[in-house]
Design a protein around this nucleic acid. Structure first.
Length: 292
DNA sequence: CGTTGAACCTGTTTGC
DNA sequence: TGCAAACAGGTTCAAC
């Protein structure tokens, strides 16, 4: 569920609420997705939440410790596939699979809910944070076209694999990869280095357009995504490729197809997003197979 | 460098 | 109707 636009939507919902609040206490349920549960219970009470930020698909809460405040830690939350983070009244009944409760100094609670527990919560020192996040690629809404072309140069991986690789760009997942490739009219199996100047230009434009539109509509709600206020997004109404197997292409009418690329379902229009030329060895193999 | 497949875990949808 | 298989927004790791 949560890719860059959904995480951004959650962050924008929390930003008017959390900064300035202090964490009074911590309660944990299942903890197998938390790096060091004991550290949360030990370190968090008394900390003031200074800000709410997003880095790729990560939510980052910089904290300030009591008086002197140096060596301040950062609380990191990743929503995985089914994670939710929301502030609720302490008396409100908790949704099923709510595994972390952070009581705030106004009596309300910041709650983390995640049925599949693919999410992650960690408490990082400034140094740990810098080291961990140095591996992530650029923000797709901030990278320049020149840098984007440099990233593609020499990459023999499929463009779909690159878009999903958080060290290439951070924040794009399966939905927005497919939607961007559809808009740019590029087949998901194209190799990164094979993209022409014009291809790369169209792809970056598509990524920017799609992500901005999705943020504007509060993200995509496929089955269970809701923002920090419990409201679903609306960008799923605008999907042109994702989860549309067998339906007509919005551009040319051809039936959208689903194939597996990099182990993930990939939806594309076989007419608008033409199959790349195969490499010679693979091509020979196919030809001989066809002759039989 | 790249790719593939499996693993993590639960819930929902699909197919026989 | 019932049960099993397939599938799901993500990340990581081993094996090739």
């Amino acid at each position: 569920m949560p890719e860059l636009p959904e995480v951004e939507t959650v962050v924008r919902g929390l930003r008017p609420v959390l900064p300035g609040r202090r964490i009074a206490s911590v309660r944990l349920g299942k903890t197998d997705f938390i790096d060091d549960p004991a550290a949360l219970e030990r370190e968090l009470p008394g900390c003031r939440i200074a800000d709410v930020q997003r880095r790729g698909k990560y939510i980052v809460l910089p904290l300030e410790r009591d008086a002197r405040g140096d060596n301040s830690p950062l609380l990191i939350v990743h929503l995985g596939m089914t994670g939710r983070l929301a502030v609720q009244a302490a008396v409100a009944p908790a949704a099923a699979h709510t595994h972390a409760y952070f009581t705030l100094d106004d009596g309300r609670e910041l709650r983390f809910t995640d049925p599949r527990r693919f999410g992650r919560i960690a408490l990082f020192s400034a140094a740990q944070f810098a080291a961990a996040f140095a591996r992530l690629g650029a923000e797709p809404l901030e990278v320049s076209e020149v840098d984007f072309r440099r990233l593609l140069a020499g990459r023999r991986a499929r463009i779909k694999a690159l878009l999903l690789d958080q060290r290439f760009l951070r924040g794009i997942g399966n939905i927005y990869a497919d939607e961007s490739l559809w808009r740019a009219q590029l087949h998901p199996m194209r190799l990164g280095a094979s993209l022409s100047f014009a291809d790369a230009h169209r792809l970056l434009e598509a990524i920017r357009h799609i992500l901005r539109a999705a943020i504007r509509l509060g993200g995509s709600s496929i089955s269970d995504f809701v923002d920090a206020n419990g409201l679903p997004g609306e960008f799923q109404m605008r999907h042109r490729a994702y989860d549309r197997e067998g339906k007509g292409c919005f551009r040319c009418g051809a039936r959208i197809r689903r194939i597996i690329v990099t182990g993930r379902s990939s939806y594309f229009c076989p007419r608008c997003q033409p199959t790349p030329r195969l490499r010679r060895a693979a091509q020979r193999k196919k030809k001989s197979a066809r002759r039989k």
